[in-house]
Each structure stands twice: as C-alpha cells, then as structure tokens.
C-alpha cells in the first residue's frame, strides 16, 4: 500500500509536461507539491485563475487570491484571471487537459460519484465537479480503493448519485492504478498486492497489463 504522498507523487509524474490541469479540492490538492517548475504544467482553479501557485499560511494570505477550497494561494509568473463564466467555459469547452478529483465510487465504465452519499440528512453540494466531469479532456480519480469498512470503491455500477457518466479514464489508488478503457478495466500498477488477490477483492473484471 502506498501513502497519500506517494499517490500524489505518482499522479504528478503522469501529468504530461505543459498540460493545463485542474486539481479538485481535498486530496488532489497535494499533487501540486510534486509538480516541478520545469514541467510547465499550468494549474487552473475554478474560481477564475490560470497559473495558480502554492497554498500559503494564513499569516501570508491575500484573501482576494484563493483556490477552489478557499485556501490562500500564490500567483505564478504568467498567471491570468478571468470571471466564472469564462472559467467554466474553459472546462466545458474541452480546453483543460487533465482534472484530478476524489471519489466515493467509480464504475467499471468510468461513471463518477463524488458529490453526494445519498444519505437523507446530508446537505448536497456539487460545486464544479459535474462541470469538470463533463468537460475536461481527461478525468482522473485519486482515492483509496476501499472504504474504511473495506467496501470496494471501484464497482460494477455506482450506487451513489452520479457526478458524470463514462468520464473517468484513470483511477489512482493506494493499492493499484487502473485505466478505464472501452474494453474494460486494466490494472497498470500494483502496490504491495498481487493481481489475483486484487481481482478477488473487487467485483469488477480486471485485465492485466
């Protein structure tokens, strides 16, 4: 099993140089720490900025300069600001190369569920997740493969309400990395688990590289 930092490092390494990338709130934010300046990756934040830098401490904050999680951040050389309709036109119009989001569940066909557990007392909140799912050229997910109680989160079909249909192409987890292809789910990396054991713990047919 790999740690959250290992996972973030692995996702960062797979982002092609020069990509325009949106990192979802929560765990994917950590990916930014492992992007090297030489990679030329430009981060988009939904609240209207390209060229977003790192998260800074509250005492160094400029509260007019925040990320999607409302944390204070910095501006890198070449940054650009734009309003919300433009920011989401960028997503929907297919201009973002990669977005990385967390998930409650991903299905074998790439359906994504990450906004609502369906619990009756939960207050629903979707933010920009559905727009990203519908618009980014590549939608990657970063998550633990199993819930705390051991239920798989890569499933034949999602039981939680969907964020988007057939949108996820890669799933990075602590246990293995998966590619979701039109032919099925392919395991591309294993972390401290054998293929047979992994296959036995999931209800999804797996293809080995």
């Amino acid at each position: 099993m790999s740690s959250k930092d290992d996972l973030a490092r692995r996702v960062a390494a797979d982002i092609p140089d020069g990509s325009y990338v949106n990192l979802g709130i929560g765990q994917p934010t950590a990916i930014a720490r492992y992007l090297t300046a030489g990679s030329g990756v430009i981060l988009h934040t939904e609240n209207g900025m390209l060229g977003m830098g790192e998260v800074v401490a509250d005492e160094d904050a400029d509260w007019d300069l925040t990320n999607a999680g409302k944390q204070p951040v910095t501006e890198l050389p070449g940054a650009a600001y734009f309003h919300h309709a433009d920011s989401f036109a960028m997503m929907r119009g297919g201009h973002l190369d990669v977005c990385v989001m967390g998930a409650f569940q991903v299905s074998a066909t790439g359906d994504l569920a990450n906004w609502h557990t369906g619990a009756p007392d939960a207050i629903p909140a979707v933010g920009g997740a559905m727009d990203l799912a519908a618009g980014a050229k590549q939608v990657w997910v970063m998550m633990t493969l199993f819930t705390k109680s051991g239920e798989p989160k890569l499933v034949p079909s999602c039981t939680y309400p969907l964020t988007g249909k057939t949108c996820v192409t890669r799933v990075y987890t602590d246990v293995a990395t998966f590619q979701i292809t039109p032919d099925g789910v392919r395991v591309t990396e294993l972390h401290g688990i054998g293929f047979e054991e992994l296959a036995s713990r999931l209800d999804v047919p797996l293809m080995q590289v």
Partner: peptide, 21 residues
C-alpha cells in the same frame, strides 16, 4: 436547512455562472 427553514436549489457551479451569463 436541517430545521426546514430554507429552500435549496442546487446548481452545478458552471451552470450557475452560465445561466446568469
């Protein structure tokens, strides 16, 4: 919300922006 004292219409963020645009 939990007390039932307010109504919520949840709109994806990009739709919120584009519908106002």
């Amino acid at each position: 919300y939990r007390a039932g004292k307010i109504e919520l219409e949840l709109v994806p963020q990009g739709n919120l922006a584009e519908r106002m645009r």
